[in-house]
């Protein structure tokens, strides 16, 4: 019970503390531009990494930029935060909405108040000046396949994992990857898309190894897919025979990257995405235009593509994936 109280107190302190920050910043407002980044939850290391990028941006561009988020992923709390920011009169808000439609009213309110609104990981949003995505799903899936194929010597059977069949992004990646393989690497063959239910990749992989001894490659979608598959492959002593490529991060797959059970973890660096989103906001505040093929000055966003989504919001796509293997994993501490 005591521990629980302590936890409650801690959570409260986090929220209140962050509001204190905001108040302090407000005092400085007259001098500099203020860009606020609101995320799903600050508890995730993913967004802590994004905060690093935002801080870097603030330093580089001499503006006030900070990252805010509820202690637990929750749209209602996120909306409340945005409303406070509107009241404070910040110049731009970068929002990474937890529930895309739930956040839209708040985004519209901000726009109505003359605030620049940029969203991230919300390509289908209705209300934003721009949405910024690290990449589009098709390009990412194709890149995954290029990486896997290179490591398989462009031949052999491979299996594909999705966290669940209902995860639209995962399915788009894997379908794009398979289509790309069929068009370019005729000696390769997919054994099918399997559901890992996020945490069951290990068990499924063990059965797959037995059922299909010809497997030479694994393409994972969920961050845990390559972890589970890598574990099973490592135990079977097949690190060198089977190439494992997929979305993951160092804090999940680090050990397996070291041993070579997982050959390549692909992800997008939230720090860079956060930085890039702030750049877009800054350029808009400065009255600049964002154009197709523009260079945002951020790795992976040197040649952006702009697509108008079904609600008329322009979506900026980068090629912001990063490739992590044993050689460079130390640079990515998230």
């Amino acid at each position: 019970m005591y521990k629980r109280l302590l936890l409650v107190a801690l959570a409260l302190a986090l929220v209140l503390g962050s509001l204190g920050d905001v108040a302090g910043i407000a005092a400085e407002k007259s001098k500099k531009l203020v860009i606020a980044v609101v995320v799903k939850s600050i508890a995730y290391r993913w967004f802590q990494r994004m905060a690093e990028g935002v801080q870097q941006f603030a330093k580089d561009y001499d503006v006030i930029a900070f990252l805010q988020g509820p202690p637990v992923a929750d749209s209602a709390q996120q909306v409340a935060l945005i409303e406070q920011l509107i009241a404070m009169g910040v110049d731009a808000i970068v929002n990474v909405p937890y529930g895309v439609p739930e956040n839209e009213p708040a985004q519209k309110e901000a726009m109505d108040n003359g605030i620049i609104v940029i969203t991230h990981e919300a390509a289908t949003t209705r209300y934003a000046h721009y949405d910024l995505e690290a990449f589009d799903n098709k390009s990412y899936g194709e890149e995954m396949m290029r990486q896997l194929a290179a490591r398989m010597g462009y031949e052999g059977d491979y299996v594909q994992f999705v966290g669940s069949f209902t995860n639209a992004s995962h399915m788009e990646w894997q379908e794009a990857a398979r289509a790309y393989q069929e068009a370019n690497y005729p000696k390769m063959k997919s054994l099918g898309i399997f559901e890992s239910k996020e945490t069951e990749a290990y068990t499924v992989m063990k059965d797959l190894l037995k059922a299909y001894p010809t497997i030479r490659g694994v393409l994972g979608s969920s961050a845990l897919d390559v972890v589970g598959a890598g574990q099973a492959i490592q135990e079977a002593g097949l690190n060198d025979q089977i190439a494992v490529v997929g979305t993951s991060i160092v804090s999940y797959a680090g050990e397996l990257l070291k041993t070579g059970a997982v050959d390549l973890a692909m992800c997008w660096d939230p720090a860079l995405a956060g930085y890039a989103a702030c750049v877009v906001a800054y350029k808009l505040l400065m009255g600049e235009e964002i154009t197709d093929g523009m260079d945002l000055g951020v790795p992976g966003y040197e040649n952006i593509r702009i697509v108008i989504n079904e609600h008329g919001v322009p979506v900026i796509y980068g090629t912001g994936w990063i490739l992590i293997d044993a050689s460079n994993m130390d640079q990515y501490n998230f």
């Binding site: 629980r4 959570a11 637990v72 845990l224 999940y252 050990e255």
Partner: peptide, 11 residues
């Protein structure tokens, strides 16, 4: 679990 302990997997 999600609110008080950790919303992330712990390795």
């Amino acid at each position: 679990n999600l609110f008080f302990i950790s919303p992330e997997m712990r390795f």
